[in-house]
Computed example of a mutant assay.
Amino acid sequence: MKVKIFIAIAGIALLAACKGRNGSYEIANNSSSADTASVSSASDTLADAKPKLVKTADMSFKVKSVQQTGDSIAHITAKLNGLVIHHQMGSSIERSEDIRLSNDSVMRVSAFNTTADMTVKIPSEKLEDFMNHVSHMGIYVTARKMDIEDKSLDYLSAKLKLKNRREMVAQQKTGKIKIKDPEAVLWLKDDMIDGQISNQKIDEAVNFSVVSLNFYQSNTIYKERIANDDPSAYKMPFFNRLLMAISNGWYLFTELILGIANLWVLILAGVGIWMAFRVYKRKYPALKV
């Protein structure tokens, strides 16, 4: 039953490919025997083709040391002829506290967590061995998943379309098929390239499985002695500050005397005006009503 369905799908895809994107192909020899032969060829190809199974996996687990685990995963990946395509490690401080040791130094105690993300490509036949080996590196596994996607029909569809387009190009050169729009020829060639690239991507995905890994460790406590960055902690002792205050007071007093001395002319003028006003009041007392 499945084979008949596959035959029907392949036949429809093949007939649709013959029409082109814009329907601008004019076929000189339009015989049903060619279509029947194409459908039969598609069924034979589907029956004989090797399944295109694309495997992907991901795992999340806790480890003792993120740094050492990352190095071990990179080593086992290279040993299995795989490739690390992404590796990111980071740490973030969750809590921090400063303990004062002296006026100019403190003990900073920080609690931070470390995580890492890795993406590797492993030969598909060695995927299970890789996943089992990596799972033994952790303290425990929080999540593990593997998916398999069958790309056989996509691969066959692209392959048949590519074959059909090659035949059309060959017939166009011999004059059996006339293409009205010249741009359709360019589209046809580009579509052939896209089909080849698409199948190469499927082959790559079939041969090498992509594995996403996330691992983390327990929070780490780190202690360090650093300089005190609080300026208020660097004040002088009380008696030193008291002597400095007395010295500053005497300095301000002497500056005040010097300032008054600089204003002697104004002071003398003010005294003269005040004395003149007193004399005037005595000489011309106010009249009583």
Rank of each mutant, 00 (worst) to 15 (best):
E149Q: 09
Y155K: 00
V169E: 06
K151Y: 14
K159Y: 10
E167P: 01
L160M: 07
E149W: 03
T174F: 14
D150K: 14
Q172T: 14
K173D: 12
S152F: 01
L162N: 01
K159H: 09
K159Q: 10
K163G: 05
K151T: 05
K151R: 15
V169I: 15
K173W: 13
E167V: 10
A170V: 13
K151N: 11
M168L: 15
G175Q: 06
S152V: 05
K159A: 10
L156C: 11
K159C: 03
L156V: 12
E167M: 11
D154V: 06
E149N: 12
D154T: 03
E149C: 07
S157P: 00
Y155W: 08
L160E: 01
M146G: 09
L162W: 00
K173L: 15
S152N: 04
S152P: 02
K176E: 12
L156E: 10
Q171V: 07
R166V: 05
K176L: 14
S157F: 05
D154G: 04
M146N: 10
I148A: 13
A158S: 13
E167F: 09
S157Y: 03
Q171G: 11
D147T: 15
A158E: 09
L160V: 01
L156I: 15
Q172H: 13
M168K: 04
R165Y: 06
G175L: 06
L160K: 02
K163S: 11
L160H: 02
L162I: 00
R165N: 09
K161N: 05
K151V: 04
G175K: 06
L160R: 02
K151E: 08
R166G: 03
R166M: 07
L156M: 12
G175V: 07
V169T: 11
E167S: 13
Q171S: 11
D154M: 04
K161Y: 01
I148D: 13
V169L: 14
K163N: 10
K159N: 10
S152I: 03
Y155I: 01
A158H: 08
N164V: 08
K173H: 14
D154C: 01
S152M: 04
M168H: 06
D154E: 13
E149P: 00
K173S: 15
K176I: 14
G175Y: 09
I148Q: 13
D154Y: 02
K151Q: 13
A170M: 11
Q172A: 10
M168P: 00
V169F: 07
L153R: 03
D154Q: 07
D150E: 12
R165M: 08
T174H: 14
V169Q: 10
S157N: 10
K151W: 08
S157W: 01
Y155C: 01
K173G: 11
G175A: 09
S152R: 04
K161C: 03
N164D: 07
L153Y: 08
K161D: 06
K173M: 15
G175N: 11
V169G: 04
I148M: 13
L156W: 08
L156K: 07
M146E: 15
K176F: 09
L156N: 05
I148R: 11
K163C: 05
S157L: 09
K161M: 02
Y155S: 02
L156Q: 11
T174C: 15
N164C: 10
K173P: 04
Q172I: 10
L153S: 01
D150V: 13
E167T: 12
Y155T: 00
G175T: 08
A158W: 06
L153V: 09
D154I: 03
